[in-house]
Every structure is written in C-alpha cells, then in structure tokens.
C-alpha cells in the first residue's frame, strides 16, 4: 500500500505510524464497496476485514455504504413482485418484424422512404410533361443582337449593342 508523500505538499510532517494509518484508511475506503460486494481477492479482503475491525473511521464509512445499499434495496423491493412482460402489441410487432424484414425497414425509415417516393413522383411527372410536350423549360435569356450591312454589302458582322 502506498504512503502519502507530504514532503512536497507543504503539509506538516506527520509521524510515520500516523501517516501509514491515514494512508491505509484511504486505500481501504477506496475498495470498501468491492469488499462489501465480495469482489476483492481473498488476501486483500482479509486485509480490509482486519483493518475494519480496528478502525472506527472506516467502520463509519462502511456503515454509510451499507445504509445506502439498504435504501436502494428498499426502493427495489417496490417492484420486486411486479411481473415484467412485453405487451401483446409489442410481441406481435416483434413477430411481424422478423417475418417481414423489408416492410419493417420501410416502417422504421418511413421519413426517408416518403421523401424518396415524393422525389421520384415529382421527377416522373416532370419527365412525362416534357415527353408529351405539355411543358418545357424556358430557354436561357440571351442578349439581343443587330446585324447591319456595311457599305451596302451584306455582312455577317454581329454588333452587340452597348448597354
């Protein structure tokens, strides 16, 4: 078990035996819950048990944990006799989901599915309208051009009017 290093902490030096006791108490209290739930190895549990028999401070800490555990136990007793079971609706839902995985996926992701279907319908309608020449997108707006003859000759020169 480690010993507290007071040399650099600026604290007043404690006698060696006192230091060891404080340190041991800290260490014991760190594993108190492990000890109480029988999760400590035999050797360590023996050490903690021995220390607990002698140390009142650690006994008080153990009593506090015990009290908390008892209260939690009481809180748990309230539903000790309640039979927790899935409702019939949930049971049927599980069956339906394992028998129809695709439908279940659609059901779970209904927002994505609805959006995809909506986009597909809009695209289909647009394509249909264009194909049937009922609607076609407007041409891009272009600048007007003037073609004027030079010296009476016909020319291909294009004059773009200044804005």
């Amino acid at each position: 078990m480690k010993i507290i290093d007071n040399k650099n902490s600026g604290m007043q030096e404690l006698p060696e035996n006192k230091k060891k006791t404080i340190d041991l108490c800290d260490d014991v209290q760190m594993v108190l819950f492990d000890y109480m739930s029988r999760e400590l190895g035999d050797n360590r549990a023996e050490l903690v048990g021995e220390h607990l028999r002698k140390c009142e401070k650690c006994q008080a800490a153990a009593a506090e944990i015990q009290k908390t555990l008892e209260l939690l136990g009481k809180a748990g007793e309230a539903d000790k006799w309640v039979e927790y079971r899935l409702s019939e609706k949930r049971r049927q839902r599980i069956h339906w989901a394992i028998l129809h995985p695709v439908l279940d996926w659609i059901y779970r992701n209904h927002i994505i599915c609805a959006l995809t279907v909506a986009i597909a319908i809009v695209l289909a309608v647009l394509i249909l309208l264009i194909k049937m020449q009922i609607w076609r997108p407007l041409p891009k707006p272009t600048l007007p051009v003037n073609i004027k003859p030079l010296n009476g000759n016909v020319t291909n020169e294009v004059v773009i009017p200044e804005e």
Binding site: T68, L71, E77, A78
Partner: peptide, 8 residues
C-alpha cells in the same frame, strides 16, 4: 415506496 427508499 417509503420516503427513505424514494430518496434513494
């Protein structure tokens, strides 16, 4: 449940 247990 008892008040103490509720507290817990």
């Amino acid at each position: 449940i008892s008040e103490a247990a509720e507290k817990a």
